[in-house]
C-alpha cells in the first residue's frame, strides 16, 4: 500500500477519482441549476460567473449538466465493470479450479464472446433492447467479463497446486470453501487492476454510445450526449464540446494512472 502512495501519478489519479466521486455524490448540493431546466433566453451564453461553463443551445447550465453526467458515467462505469468482475471471477475460478471439461466449456465460451467486436455487439444489442442507462450497464457488464475470467483462471491454475490447498482438502474443506477462502483472496490482485482499467473503458464506451444516441437519452445529461449536442453548434459555442471532452479525457486518464499504480504495486519485480 505504501508503494502505491509513493507513486505520485497513481496518487494524482486516485485524488481525481475521489474528487469526481464527491462531485457526483453531492451533485444536487453543488449544482446551481437543474440540469434539465431550459432557458432559451440564455442559450449558448459564454462561460461567466452566472454560468461557470456557459450554457448549451437550449440554455441549460453546462456546469450542472456536466456534474450530473459525471454521476451517470461513474455509476455506469463502476456497476457495469462490477458486474463483469462478478461474472468473470465466478466463471474463471470455476474453470481454473475444476479444470477438464468444465474449463474447456467455459473458456471456449469466453473465446466465442471475444470473437465479436465488442462495441458493435453492444450497438446491435442496444438496437434490439432499446437504449437506457440500465441496459447500457448490463450490456457493458455482460460483454466485459472474459478478460477477468482469463486472469483469475490463470492465477488459480498456479495457486491450486500450493500445499495450503492440499492441507485444506485434508481438513475436509468444501470446494466452495477452498475457492472463496483461499483461491479468490490470493488471486484477486490482478482482477483489481483489471477492474480499474475496465472502468476507464466502460466510461469511454458509455460516452461513445451516448454520443451515437444509443446510451443515456436526452434530456438526461451524459458527457457523450452533451458532446453530440455540442457538435451541432461547434461554430458558435466551443465550450459546449470542449468541457465534456476534457472531462472524459481526465476521468479516463485518472483511472488508467491508478490502474498502472496498482499494477506496479502488485508486481514486486518492477522496481524503479
Amino acid at each position: 500500500m505504501r508503494k502505491l502512495f509513493q507513486n505520485k501519478l497513481a496518487v494524482f489519479g486516485a485524488s481525481i477519482i475521489l474528487l469526481l466521486m464527491l462531485l457526483a455524490i453531492f451533485a444536487p448540493q453543488i449544482t446551481p441549476y437543474d440540469p434539465t431546466y431550459i432557458n432559451i433566453k440564455d442559450a449558448l451564453s459564454t462561460p461567466s460567473m452566472k454560468h461557470l461553463l456557459g450554457t448549451d443551445s437550449l440554455g441549460r447550465d453546462l456546469f450542472s449538466r456536466m456534474i450530473y453526467a459525471a454521476r451517470i458515467a461513474l455509476l455506469i462505469g463502476l456497476i457495469a465493470v462490477g458486474l463483469a468482475c462478478v461474472i468473470g471471477v465466478f466463471l474463471g475460478s470455476i474453470a481454473g479450479y475444476f479444470g477438464g471439461k468444465m474449463d474447456s466449456f467455459i473458456m471456449r465460451f469466453a473465446d466465442i464472446m471475444l470473437c465479436f467486436p465488442r462495441f458493435f455487439l453492444i450497438l446491435a444489442v442496444i438496437a434490439v433492447v432499446g437504449p437506457s442507462i440500465f441496459n447500457v450497464m448490463v450490456i457493458i457488464g455482460l460483454t466485459g467479463w472474459m478478460g477477468m475470467a482469463r486472469l483469475i483462471r490463470a492465477e488459480i491454475l498456479s495457486l491450486k497446486t500450493r500445499d495450503y490447498i492440499s492441507a485444506s482438502k485434508m481438513l475436509d474443506a468444501s470446494h466452495f470453501f477452498i475457492i472463496t477462502r483461499h483461491l479468490i483472496p490470493n488471486a484477486i490482485g490482478p482482477v483489481l487492476v483489471s477492474f480499474v482499467f475496465g472502468v476507464a473503458g466502460a466510461i469511454l464506451t458509455e460516452a461513445g454510445l451516448s454520443f451515437l444516441g444509443l446510451g443515456v437519452q436526452p434530456p438526461n445529461p451524459s458527457w457523450g450526449n452533451i458532446l453530440m449536442e455540442g457538435k451541432a453548434v461547434l461554430g458558435v459555442g466551443w465550450w459546449v464540446i470542449l468541457f465534456p471532452g476534457l472531462a472524459i479525457l481526465i476521468t479516463v486518464l485518472a483511472f488508467n494512472l491508478l490502474g498502472e499504480g496498482l499494477r506496479d504495486m502488485l508486481n514486486p519485480r518492477i522496481e524503479k
Binding site: R162, D163, Y164, S166, A167, M170, L171, R181, P185, N186
Partner: peptide
C-alpha cells in the same frame, strides 16, 4: 493429516495465524 515440506507454500499468505490454525 499432513505436514508439508515447504513452509512457504503450505500456509495461505493472506490468512492470519489463528485462522490458519483453526481452519
Amino acid at each position: 493429516q499432513i505436514v508439508f515440506q515447504d513452509p512457504y507454500s503450505s500456509l495461505d499468505p493472506r490468512m492470519k495465524m489463528q485462522d490458519i490454525v483453526l481452519e
